[in-house]
Design a protein around this nucleic acid. Structure first.
Lengths: 194, 194
DNA sequence: CTATAAAGCAAACAGTCGTTTGTTTTGTTT
DNA sequence: AAACAAAACAAACGACTGTTTGCTTTATAG
């Protein structure tokens, strides 16, 4: 009677399912990835996935949640190491881009799969994103900018450019996520303090 | 014998097909849009579409081509009206964003549908995009920037931010595509010339 | 060792997908 | 009016979709 829930099996395969789902969602997109694709990747039968998730959209939401959590943690840890507002923003930009381009699949799903692609889960996905956006808004708010500077545009410019980098970034070149983020921030900073 | 091809019927419905395909591809994405969706939108039977296009991917490529052509024309016309490099770039940015956010479906398909979403047509789509990118590269090359400025990063920063705006822009607010583009450019310009 | 619940298998459901085929309608040209 | 091609219909093909159901395996708890 005291025991209401049994301890789940140790070799749980749920992490593996999430990993492969994240990989496939990011590679082919949500709609083009079938439950059978995911099942095959984890060497399972399609129906077995429904023991872990009630529907395909729920699997996406789970991946999405983990992606947002991962980016948020990386960014929070990075900015905690600095005091000066510009340094904090730069650290955040670097962490954000490294989470996207190096950590891999989970984070990329967050900016690759659009909420409108999954109508039934759109509200949940948007809520997850908004929480993260607020973090950057705070960082920009703390910057010592000229009073006439539009801080909202500033944030959208920076974050948009960072997110778009998924489309052209190739790991081969001399550019690293860190150098790209720094380069972007330098272009923005020099403009604001002569 | 002299006549090899008959003049096509005047009330051709091909433009209508492209219009609806563009609308649906931009609303739901490529994979989530079915040939039946498109056929229903133009009040046709699914099979009839195959008189105009050999495959779904070819329909996408046709929409994509028109989208790229549309943006390119708008931008070319806009920059032709200015001489000074910064003014030319600003005109291009405004035209680019207006093409995306006002002209509508065709242009948005170009930045919404990723080449990797359509493996069989990916090469064709990338080729179309690259031609356009070169246009912006020229504009940035003409700017009178300090010698240490990284012009490639400059271009990627601006274009990325512009393209990403599709995700947050809402037509309701005080912000217009024009004001956004100008705002972005001001943030970038002030940094480069004290 | 046995009871029990977690986890997965096996097989199918109804529906949708892109596409093909043969035929019919429609408009234009002569 | 006859000839002909453009354009669309009507109907189906096999493959694939997300999901459900009932049964079996497997590990843990008492």
């Amino acid at each position: 009677m005291a025991q209401t829930l049994r301890i789940p099996r140790s070799d749980n395969r749920l992490p593996q399912i999430l990993d492969e789902a994240a990989r496939l969602f990011r590679e082919k997109g949500y709609a083009a990835t079938s439950m059978r694709d995911i099942a095959a990747a984890v060497d399972m039968l399609p129906g077995s996935l429904y023991y872990h998730f009630a529907a395909k959209e729920d699997l996406l939401v789970a991946v999405y949640e983990q992606g947002v959590r991962l980016i948020t943690e990386k960014v929070r840890a990075a900015i905690a190491r600095h005091e000066e507002p510009w340094h904090r923003l730069e650290a955040a930009a670097v962490a954000h881009l490294e989470a996207l381009l190096k950590t891999g699949d989970y984070a990329l799903v967050v900016i690759r799969v659009l909420p409108q692609d999954v109508p039934k889960a759109a509200a949940r996905l948007v809520r997850l994103r908004d929480g993260y956006d607020a973090l950057f808004a705070e960082l920009v708010a703390a910057l010592p900018l000229p009073p006439e500077t539009d801080r909202q545009s500033f944030r959208l410019l920076l974050l948009g450019a960072l997110n778009w980098s998924q489309h052209w970034f190739r790991d081969s070149g001399r550019h690293s996520p860190r150098s790209i983020a720094r380069s972007f921030l330098r272009l923005l900073r020099e403009a604001q303090q002569p």
